[in-house]
Design a protein around this nucleic acid. Structure first.
Lengths: 240, 240
DNA sequence: CTCCCTAGTTGAACGTGTTCAACTTCCAGT
DNA sequence: ACTGGAAGTTGAACACGTTCAACTAGGGAG
């Protein structure tokens, strides 16, 4: 219902309609907010019928998926650019978070409405859903790079899961961001600036002997409960 | 609009209508799920008009607040009963989490729909909102008790914020629970069983010298960014 | 007892997201 | 060139949450 398999000029025409709807929707979302943008308005502004919008997008929510994946791509690109040359892990993590906030800022106004739906497990907008997998993988891959570019020695037993944990850290920040009503989301920026060094510190400390058992437990925990399969369900192997 | 100030028999009549609507709503939510329960159905089943339901409850969402506070009260009572006599922190935390899962189980079916709205900062259903404050305070008070009843020595600098952190831990578990589709939410129970000892371990380790700076940072972080004022906004004192 | 004012109550009406049967356009195969 | 069918498109219709102007009842003041 979403990927037209046609060929030739028809495909281009179809692609054009589709992107016209998406562009209009994203623009109106940013202008008026999510709830105040009606499907009728989107359709009218894009020069198509309401039903036609539903031909390309299963629901109003699905229009946001486009926004989500676009934002992720921008985030990854901007971060890559800015971390080049920087080897300190804390700085690199901080940059990644800053970049997210920068990219997301124009949409803060309607982000609340957005994440409302994202918290519904049955919604394809959930960050853990199958539909969100591409964006999620893009982001974890980014954090793999963030980690790879540092001179810091990382405890081998957690190297595998660290990208996922940094992604989770980012998700927590996003949660705070959604609730943040300070101008320019100043407080969230402050929070990012303060947590980034702590994350780096934890990575360093994880090699200490006293913390070994805890780190091992944490590693197993993330592996068993957080890693998401391709179906989008957090349903890893049964406990032994 | 919600608290009728009348006196005499009129008050009783009003109270009766109000609770009739609430009871019917909660029953239908549990039976059919949130989305499939229409306001028209609630009104019809309760023997009132649609408009009347809106006289007592500002919106469909507001009906859930009743469910939320009721569940919290049940959770606190059950936990209090079960932790009596137990002095091990890990066990006490584990019991508190188990109790939550037990109390919440009947509502898992529509919890997703519930927490969808809860993630909207502008919704009174957000766990951080002003309207949720009573339930939130009840829960943090419970965790204060959970901590008080153990023989474990707690680093004084984090004693104040620990209840809030345990509450946050519970919120994280709830988030996982919402996504958990295993029968009886088995996986979430497993997760609770495994994180409880880790929490206790972290509390113990927090007294180690190597961890001092990190613990101090974490303490300041929670104090500056998590503690919620009476207005329901996470907007603590400005950073220095 | 009568009047009046407020709390309580009503249901039709509005705007919304979504669906669907019908229509149009366009290309592939003859 | 023709035609069959798939892809694309339409807008009226549906069910829902919510609003509101109007109505009713019930108890206190005179």
């Amino acid at each position: 219902m979403t990927e037209p398999p046609a060929a030739g000029r028809a495909r281009a025409r179809s692609e054009h309609t589709r992107s016209a709807i998406l562009e209009t929707a994203l623009r109106l979302f940013a202008e008026r907010g999510y709830d105040k943008t009606t499907m009728r308005a989107i359709a009218a502004e894009a020069g198509v019928s309401v039903g036609n919008a539903y031909y390309y997008f299963d629901s109003k929510d699905h229009l946001i998926q486009g926004f989500y994946s676009r934002m992720t791509t921008e985030h990854v690109a901007l971060t890559r650019e800015r971390i080049a040359g920087e080897t300190d892990l804390a700085a690199r993590v901080g940059i990644a978070l800053e970049c997210w906030l920068e990219v997301a800022e124009p949409y803060h106004r309607f982000a609340g409405q957005f994440f409302r739906n994202a918290a519904d497990p049955s919604s394809p907008l959930s960050p853990f859903s199958h539909e969100s997998a591409p964006a999620r993988l893009e982001d974890t891959a980014l954090y793999r790079e963030v980690l790879a570019g540092t001179s810091l020695r990382i405890a081998p037993e957690i190297a595998d899961i660290l990208p996922e944990m940094l992604w989770l850290h980012q998700m927590a920040l996003v949660l705070y961001w959604v609730y943040d009503r300070t101008p320019g989301q100043r407080r969230t920026r402050e929070l990012a600036k303060r947590t980034a060094p702590m994350v780096a510190r934890i990575v360093t400390l994880s090699r200490y002997k006293v913390l070994r058992p805890l780190v091992r437990q944490a590693e197993a925990l993330v592996r068993d409960f957080l890693i998401i399969d391709e179906g989008g369900n957090p349903a890893p192997p049964d406990p032994a």
